[in-house]
């Protein structure tokens, strides 16, 4: 059995359906990304899998164990990093790590090789209270704490939220190394660009999984032709492009707009002529859509 198996999990809070019939599996040594905005149900799903919440219906297995019946065993075998880096702010880096090592019946030394790469980066600050660390440092410390007992499955709930791009990049590099040690990793993120770094991604919205696929598979499944357009005055360009009668969607992406048309490529020429008239400096090129384009497309349908 795969390290994480989720079968038709649903969960309701009062009138809100937090999870609707969720099913997926994560293999050993796989980095599985749960991509979706706040409120999509990512945290609820994590809590079900880490035995903190009971699902209303459906089954889930972590490391081959039932999340309801065998919760005690699961709690020994998984590493969990909840959102907002749950650390003791008034304890130093070293004290936090030591504490979490001890409650998992282990010591920092025992599994040092697993956390070494990460720990050396925060070691210079080991006497500093966790509350006084920068976001990136807190994140690294929280990861160390989640890894200190050498878990077989790692749950990371939004580990990169609110962290700057440099720390984010470093964090994903660390995950790649952990993956190579055979740990199954389930990670959630609101950042679409991080989806490309996962082996498998599940796009999540309003408690539902819109699609489970490899990042490449997600992009390939997007059948619509797409163009990137640019002009001197972008604000003007947005309003004119949206006013075009065959425009299906038009959103800003970095320094250009991504546009799709209702009937594929049929109106490509018409669009170009229409836009050129009103927008000096217009450039238009056919592009390969990214994960974010796909997600937005799936969200709307």
């Amino acid at each position: 059995m795969n390290p994480i198996v989720v079968q038709h999990i649903s969960k309701q809070y009062k009138s809100v359906e937090a999870l609707k019939d969720i099913s997926f599996e994560v293999k050993a040594g796989e980095l599985f990304g749960l991509i979706g905005p706040d409120g999509a149900g990512k945290t609820t799903l994590f809590r079900v899998l880490t035995t903190l919440l009971l699902a209303d219906t459906g089954k889930a297995f972590v490391n081959g164990r039932d999340v309801v019946k065998d919760y005690k065993l699961i709690r020994r075998e998984v590493g969990y990093m909840p959102g907002r880096f749950s650390l003791y702010q008034d304890l130093t880096v070293e004290e936090n790590l030591k504490f979490f090592a001890t409650i998992f019946n282990t010591s920092i030394k025992e599994n040092y090789d697993l956390i070494r790469d990460i720990y050396v980066q925060i070691e210079p600050f080991k006497k500093r209270p966790a509350g006084k660390l920068s976001g990136g440092m807190k994140q690294k410390l929280a990861l160390c704490c989640a890894l200190v007992h050498k878990p077989e499955v790692l749950f990371l709930d939004e580990p990169t939220t609110g962290v700057d791009p440099v720390s984010r990049k470093e964090f994903w590099e660390m995950l790649q190394r952990l993956k190579s040690k055979g740990i199954a990793i389930l990670v959630s993120t609101p950042y679409m660009d991080e989806a490309n770094l996962c082996d498998q991604v599940a796009l999540m919205q309003n408690g539902q999984l819109l699609q489970i696929n490899t990042p490449k598979g997600v992009v390939d499944s997007f059948a619509q032709p797409m163009w990137a357009i640019r002009a001197d005055n972008m604000y003007q360009l947005i309003s004119t492009a949206r006013a075009f009668e065959d425009t299906q969607s038009c959103y800003a992406f970095g320094d250009s707009l991504h546009i799709t048309l209702t009937n594929g490529t049929a109106q490509e020429e018409a669009l170009a002529t229409y836009l050129k008239e009103k927008n000096p400096g217009l450039t238009m090129e056919r592009i390969q859509p990214g994960i974010e384009d796909c997600f937005m497309y799936l969200m709307k349908n």
């Binding site: 905005p37 937005m296 969200m299 709307k300």
Partner: peptide, 17 residues
């Protein structure tokens, strides 16, 4: 725009523009 879905994020930027 932290934590907001990609469509809302764009709509937010529309407001900024």
């Amino acid at each position: 725009t932290g934590g907001v879905d990609p469509i809302t994020r764009r709509q937010f930027w529309d407001l900024i523009y």
